[in-house]
Design a binder for these strands. Structure first.
Lengths: 188, 188
DNA sequence: CGCCGAGTTGAACTGAATCAAGAAACGTGG
DNA sequence: CCACGTTTCTTGATTCAGTTCAACTCGGCG
């Protein structure tokens, strides 16, 4: 079961045998039902998760309404990184959209392993950098692109997104209303 | 002259004496005139800069128009981090708004020092994390706040911004037109 | 003194939000 | 496996915030 995450990690930064064995010991496989919460607002994040199968969303309440911040798909490594790093309350809720299989990694234990194994410390830096580039890119897209353009990019990256995520959630992620996305999609 | 950056670095992550001496050797003090470019689109970033005195802006051309991405103020450490990390072409232009005093740090030499000094390697991680939190915060603000709210935050952090940056640039940063910002400011 | 760039103000226009109603898809229990 | 209720999506009409366009003010500066 941990085979898929091993492959993903090898891509990011290969680990030597002992490092992987130590890391594997702290991995936990979870099967959660749709609507399960991985994290809620005002809670401190404790884990990273690797998405084996399923989809999840991060969102925030504003004026009583959900605003979707991002989605996690298969092979993504997700968490509230800012909460993990600062050990302060999370800004966002993370909730499963589908029944999902996840692999959880306890952050504290992981950090201990970065001190024990050089290769895990290098993996951690790479992860931070990868995460940074992801957020930086999101940030640029939000600044420079219109909702329609961001929609096209999302579709290109995850063509099946609308089969698996509700139109309302996608619209919220794009910063527009469901009605407007419906019209964009219909090409009007 | 390098005293201000030394203080700033000590805040982020204290360096031992030798590490600081090695780091100081690769610092370059620059005095640039307003409108000088630190980096242009399709160029690969080579340096980090610390802003001793002055203001600069990052912007991108879309349909022939400048769109301002961010500002750098006194004490900020700035660069196109994504270009630096990936060593690919920069997405943005970085240009001085005022005559400025900057301290430049060559990235390649800096990375060499992270290998020589443990404390500089830790400083680098801290810088990455600090930068990440900054971008993450910007990203969230863009997603969850309206232009008016972002304007209020900007004013709170840099009350003098409108004395030093043109209304048009601030409006562009906020993603609205100069006319709209003028009306927001007038409280209409 | 007159020009120029920056900011303001007004009026018309427009794209997206809101409000409202109906159609389609989905799943749950009989 | 159908029937019914619920949720999701579409479509239309109206409203509204923000853009665009244009004219005007103000404060340097040659």
């Amino acid at each position: 079961m941990t085979e898929t995450i091993r492959k993903r990690i090898q891509e990011i930064r290969p680990l030597d045998k002992e490092a992987w064995e130590d890391l594997e010991k702290i991995l936990e496989v979870y099967n959660f039902k749709a609507n399960h919460f991985l994290l809620t607002q005002n809670e401190i994040a404790k884990n990273l998760y690797y998405v084996v199968k399923g989809i999840l969303k991060s969102y925030y309440y504003k004026n009583g309404k959900e605003i979707v911040h991002w989605f996690g798909f298969e092979n993504d490594i997700i968490t509230s990184l800012s909460s993990l790093i600062t050990q302060q309350n999370s800004f966002e809720n993370i909730k499963l959209i589908e029944d999902s299989t996840l692999i959880g990694i306890n952050y504290e234990k992981f950090i201990k392993l970065t001190k024990k194994h050089h290769s895990i410390s290098l993996l951690y830096s790479k992860l931070l950098v990868e995460y940074f580039l992801l957020i930086d890119n999101e940030n640029k897209n939000k600044h420079f692109l219109k909702a329609k353009e961001r929609y096209d990019i999302l579709l290109k990256n995850y063509p099946a997104v609308l089969q698996r995520v509700s139109l309302g959630d996608v619209a919220s992620y794009l910063g527009i209303t469901q009605e407007t996305l419906s019209r964009i999609r219909a090409g009007k």
